[in-house]
Design a protein around this nucleic acid. Structure first.
Length: 885
RNA sequence: GGGCGAAUAGCUCAGCUGGGAGAGCAUCGGCCUUACAAGCCGAGGGUCACAGGUUCGAUCCCUGUUUCGCCCACCA
């Protein structure tokens, strides 16, 4: 017996070989002219700067499972790949490179810098694409897109100009989130709040024309340099007489009014609040209500500017220290308390953001959000799991205008031109040459670029060629499904919904599957700084892609977190190896076998054959159902159990006699079933484990209708008509084998020892089944001499076990320890006794009998009878055993 | 402050519309049985966080409590 498959599965070369073959043969190509029903997914575009991390690995594995499954299930599949230009992130990467060379982008100038970013991208930007391929991602790579491509840039412009024309984009001067390191505005979403320990400084502001001081509490004492009022609650009697008076702002000696505003909480701190309208979002509102002065005290880097008087030029935290010290020196520091505070940080560089006055571009998203809410409400888009709908609605209902301008260079430059003659703004699809207002030609283009997420919001249709009316859009939009993590539900999913509905008039995807985030084995977020990152590529190198993918699928059920452990991956590596060896066994036994025109109906199938084919059909049905429901873990579980427990542990063992026997007809039948089961199993497993399954499939004898497993039809379990023949008989045989094994195992009978067994059957039906399965029992339970039948002659002294209505008797003679048998029986009796009690009690309850549905009642009655029967047999046996002592 | 999620075997987690608690790993005992020691056979292990409620019946539904995690939010 020989096969050319090596003894252990070695993934590396196999993966490379088949991925290249699939790709070069166009297996992943989508055809918009195909008559087949469509299935489409757009990839969440990873940042060009990206390196494959666990999140990507999970996200893309799940997509690939869906896509491969649908492709095999007769759909024309488009999985649209690409990358995101990732404005700030990418700019930061290239700026760091420049810094290493002792340069900064301003030395280069805008054009040269952008040139440099493009160069960086062509040299090292494609990394993640290669990594996705190693993961097995079956995207249509010929369609790969980049958010800065000409086509997508055109879509961005079209959308910007349309929204502007519809009055949904406007420009305004207000307080925004400013990153002093990136030197750009950020949207609210791009600010991450982190609770930090801080202080509450209580400052004393002298009231003008009195000897009173007003104590104000602040978490940011340095901002007092920009105070333009102190506010108290209008209801607050303590300060009623001070309203309308002024205080002298210390250190800057500015006289500022004491005002009354509802916003002030009487209970908090001293009940008086310093108001810094240019540096705090609340104060900004108060400032507007009371027409206060807005004094900006910082420069774009977060250093105090000329408005800060003596503190001019100081870094903000140095200024804080100094301000506090100076106040203290003047006796104006009342006290310092500890105080927790949520500090906003830049999501790209973790620098503490500064509320900062500036003129920015905004999208009025309210009207867009309404449509996006409706679409989920009426089910045009379904979010799975449903719980996320609530989060989606919550955000949509409270949505605020979106600040889309960024003061960086890498990105889509805003198509707006300012006229030096009339100061009018011209927004246009083509680069403006003349002012739309005065006809002047002295135009300057807006230097700001758009938020990266603006272009990703268009991804589902911009990648398909919009604004052209392409065949691709016609065939594949709306997409079937979006697979993503909940961390970008607002950033991306919500915005795609709004833009898709606005510009395509249809939802961008019919279903959104939200998966969990991957964390380390301790549940910590993986991050470079924590050093707990598990690199997917090293996992792939160590365990193989298929084992890794299977692990991710098996973990996918988890609500929010996936705690990845390498032990678990090793377990699925073992599984891959198990499949490999089962396949080796099969191939070794398919010598001279020709699968062409195989027809199982021709054969008189054995009980084991029928059983495994039923199990296979069942597994196929369950796998399909699980995938339809996005229950990847169920799919993995079903296939794991079928492969290992049903196929390997039972069927392969059961079929050996048939394969090794002398009867060529029996052998041929066994080979046929073995072949059908393995071949179907490979197809079932392929979406989860594409490489190993292709490798084995290609090694199978004979020719199959398709060149690759990728293209072969996915089993749905309906085509195998063996289910109705039943599995009950085989299961009785298996129970019997397990019963004998139990006695042997419990009583330390050497596995090599052949024993004698008597099966006393209570029904002729069972006896017939067991006569049929006698070979199995002998082989798998290592029984030498087997006698069975109804009312068969019983050995005088035997160890006893029960399988259904069959009493298993293993004659003790010289084989078995009496005390051990007594112990074992007592244990068994105790177990069955518990069952008897449980069901007897239940059935004694009149209310239960009166109210429970009939099928429950009948089931419980049957179980009680069975348990009582078993108990009786075991007790009888116990008595005999005890009599021997 | 609002919202969401989690609590089940030593560990990591499954558990569908309520009807006798499951898997993997780990543990214990026995096996190199010609596909696989990354394996085979057998076994042990759980007051399903706590307290109430609904029900004939609750791990599952409802209420409350505790612990942990996440998201959103302008209380200085």
């Amino acid at each position: 017996m020989e096969t050319h498959l090596p003894k252990g599965y070695e993934p590396r070369d196999v993966e490379k070989k088949w991925y290249q073959a699939w790709e070069s043969q166009g297996c992943f190509r989508a055809d918009e002219h195909s008559p087949k029903p469509h299935y489409s997914i757009v990839i969440p575009p990873p940042n060009v700067t990206g390196v494959l991390h666990m999140g990507h690995a999970l996200n893309n594995t799940l997509q690939d499972i869906l896509v491969r499954w649908k492709r095999m299930s007769g759909h024309e599949v488009l999985w649209m790949p690409g990358t995101d230009h990732a404005g700030i992130a990418t700019q930061n990467v290239v700026e760091k490179q420049l810094a290493a060379e002792g340069k900064d982008r301003h030395e280069l100038g805008r054009e040269a810098f952008i040139e440099r970013v493009w160069r960086w991208r062509s040299e090292s930007g494609g990394q993640i694409i290669h990594q996705l391929k190693r993961l097995g991602a079956s995207c249509d790579w010929e369609r790969e897109r980049f958010t800065m491509d000409a086509g997508l840039s055109r879509a961005v412009r079209e959308v910007f100009v349309s929204l502007y024309e519809d009055g949904l984009i406007y420009r305004d001067n207000r307080l925004i989130n400013w990153c002093p390191r990136c030197h750009t505005a950020l949207s609210d979403l791009e600010v991450e709040h982190e609770d930090k320990k801080g202080n509450l400084w209580h400052l004393r502001y002298p009231v003008v024309g009195s000897d009173r001081v007003l104590v104000v509490a602040t978490t940011r004492p340095e901002t007092m340099l920009g105070d333009t009022a102190v506010a108290v609650n209008p209801e607050d009697e303590r300060y009623a007489d001070l309203i309308g008076k002024t205080v002298l702002l210390p250190l800057v000696d500015r006289e500022i009014p004491i005002i009354a505003d509802e916003y002030v909480d009487k209970e908090f701190g001293s009940g008086a609040v310093k108001i810094t309208p240019a540096h705090d979002f609340n104060d900004f509102e108060v400032g507007k209500r009371h027409s206060l002065e807005f004094i900006n005290i910082f420069d774009p880097s977060g250093n105090v500017n000329e408005n800060g008087g003596a503190y001019n030029g100081m870094e903000r935290y140095a200024a804080r220290k100094q301000v506090v010290a100076d106040l203290e020196a003047r006796g104006l520091l009342e006290k310092i308390e500890e105080h927790g505070n949520a500090v906003g940080e830049c999501y790209r560089c973790r620098t503490v953001i500064e509320p900062y006055m500036s003129k920015q571009w905004y999208v009025n998203v309210g009207p867009l959000a309404e449509k996006a809410i409706e679409a989920v409400k009426d089910g045009r888009t379904r979010i799975v799991p449903e719980q996320w709908e609530k989060t989606y609605f919550e955000w949509m209902y409270n949505i605020k205008d979106w600040c889309i301008s960024r003061q960086i260079w890498w990105g889509h430059r805003i198509p707006a031109w300012y006229c030096d003659d009339c100061e009018g703004v011209t927004v246009a699809r083509e680069d403006a040459i003349v002012c739309a207002h005065c006809g002047g030609t002295r135009l300057r283009q807006e230097t700001d670029v758009l938020d990266t997420w603006f272009s990703s919001a268009l991804w589902p249709f911009s990648t398909m060629g919009w604004p052209e009316k392409t065949e691709t859009l016609k065939k594949f939009y709306p997409t079937s499904c979006l697979v993503t993590g909940f961390d970008i539900l607002f950033f991306w999913v919500a915005r795609m919904m709004m833009m898709g509905l606005k510009f395509m008039g249809e939802v961008p995807f019919k279903e959104v599957y939200i998966h969990a985030l991957v964390r380390d084995a301790q549940g910590q977020k993986m991050s470079k700084s924590k050093g707990n990152v598990i690199d997917p590529l090293s996992v792939i190198d160590e365990y193989g892609t298929d084992a890794f993918r299977f692990t991710l699928a098996a973990f996918a059920a988890m609500g929010r977190d996936i705690k990845l452990s390498t032990e678990r991956i090793a377990g699925y590596r073992n599984f891959a190896n198990k499949l490999w060896n089962a396949s080796r066994f099969t191939l070794m036994n398919l010598e001279g076998f020709e699968p062409e025109g195989i027809d199982l109906d021709r054969f008189d199938l054995s009980p084991a054959d029928t059983w495994i084919l039923c199990r296979l059909a069942e597994a196929a049905r369950e796998t399909n159902q699980a995938l339809r429901d996005y229950k990847f873990n169920d799919a993995a579980g079903v296939l794991y159990a079928f492969t290992w427990n049903s196929f390997c542990d039972w069927y392969i063992e059961l079929v050996k006699d048939d394969l090794y026997g002398a009867d060529p007809a029996v052998k041929s039948r066994a080979q046929s079933v073995l072949y059908v089961v393995l071949e179907s199993l490979l197809r079932l497993l392929h979406p989860l484990m594409p490489f190993i399954t292709e490798e084995i499939w290609q090694a199978l004898p004979g020719r199959r209708p398709t060149t690759f497993l990728v293209d072969s039809p996915y089993p749905d379990g309906e085509g195998l008509p063996y289910a109705e023949r039943g599995v009950a008989g085989m299961e009785l045989i298996m129970e019997t084998i397990k019963g004998i094994r139990n006695i042997r195992g419990e009583m330390d009978v050497a596995p090599s020892k052949q024993i004698q067994a008597v099966l006393d059957c209570k029904s002729e039906a069972s006896a017939a089944v067991l006569r049929d399965g006698a070979g199995y029992v002998k082989a798998l339970a290592r029984v030498g001499e087997l006698t069975l039948g109804v009312g068969v002659e019983r050995p005088a002294q035997a160890a006893t076990q029960v399988a259904g209505d069959v009493e298993i008797l293993l004659p003790l003679a010289g084989l078995i320890n009496v005390e051990e048998e007594e112990k074992r029986l007592l244990k068994e009796i105790a177990k069955v006794e518990k069952d008897v009690e449980l069901f007897a009690k239940k059935l004694a309850n009149e209310n239960f009998v009166a109210n429970a549905p009939r099928h429950v009642l009948e089931k419980d009655r049957a179980k009680l009878a069975e348990a009582e029967e078993k108990r009786a047999i075991l007790q009888e046996s116990l008595k005999k055993i005890q009599a021997l002592r």
